[in-house]
Design a protein around this nucleic acid. Structure first.
Lengths: 167, 167
DNA sequence: CTCAAAGTTGACTAATTTACTCAGGTATGG
DNA sequence: CCATACCTGAGTAAATTAGTCAACTTTGAG
């Protein structure tokens, strides 16, 4: 299933509960840093995430070089870099198998252009989302410093009832 | 958008292939608008999405007032509003059952503050993502007018190798 | 050295979601 | 009428999520 595509940006952001768990756990680590490693048992009880599930997530976070592990008594996990240098995008991508952007990869029938156009548009959009999340660090989230008015860019003339379907 | 400014949303964005299918189909509709309704069969063959799956998606898109349907021969679907007034966020939210932001909703044990803090931080972040996608319309995607340099905001001091793990 | 605390790994699984198919409807233009 | 197209709901295989369980390895403290 995994395409060995050499191209960059063939993979998409995926935002689900899995990524939220990972970000929440990383925020917990950032919030409680300073006194040595933090055990997953602490994170588990504080954030109400099962210990075994955290172990899976942190296995991936470690492989992505986002955390360091210390074994033995007094051990635990700690951020490998300062929280100001770890982006949300990194955390989300570390735990998610990224989904393939192009369904039409090896397949034919993509010459008529239409198919590839939509794919490319979505890929570019996904890239924008990635850029956005890359610009937000754990520390910025904690300090609530991430931009407040990002949506005030262009013709933004939704009526009230259109917006409310968010609830 | 005064509505979103007040209280935080309790529902989160979810980005998966499902939303991509919906956006792709909506882009197809936008690209081929002007000659009356477009059949799902056309969209199906052009975008390589199964007809029955499209029917499910468009049922939700119609309930969300994003498309109008015309029955009978010569019928099909068309955008209810101009593509410049339909945001990506609307499309994605229309087809996804939104996931709950707060696991600790009715539960106790949320008094110690830590749990709720992480939840709130993630909720605020999710709100930012929503704001971001709300600011991008179908037309902007087609015209590729969505902001090119959204990530150049704050202390953006990632090293190269940190960013590249997107591949 | 021993023991217990912690991470590490892999196999397994129930529940849920995704991505469909199928079998019927209903509305409507020609 | 009748073919076309939307509409609805039931069902379902595959994948993902969100875990559990068992068996390790490493290491600090006593």
């Amino acid at each position: 299933m995994g395409t060995l595509a050499g191209n960059l940006q063939e993979e998409l952001m995926k935002l689900s509960t899995k990524g939220r768990y990972a970000v929440t756990a990383m925020l917990d680590l950032a919030l409680h840093s300073g006194n040595g490693p933090i055990t997953l048992a602490e994170v588990s009880s504080r954030q109400d995430i099962s210990l075994s599930y955290l172990e899976q997530l942190f296995s991936k976070l470690r492989k992505a070089s986002l955390v360091d592990s210390v074994r033995g008594p007094g051990g635990g996990y700690e951020l490998k870099r300062p929280s100001s240098q770890i982006s949300i995008a990194e955390v989300v991508l570390a735990v998610n198998e990224p989904i393939s952007a192009t369904k039409c990869n090896g397949k034919g029938g993509c010459q008529d252009g239409d198919l590839c156009l939509s794919h490319q548009l979505w890929t570019e959009l996904s890239d924008q989302i990635y850029q956005f999340l890359s610009g937000i660090t754990l520390e910025q989230v904690i300090q609530r410093q991430f931009v407040q008015k990002v949506a005030e860019r262009q013709n933004h003339r939704f009526r009230e009832e259109d917006v409310i379907l968010f609830s």
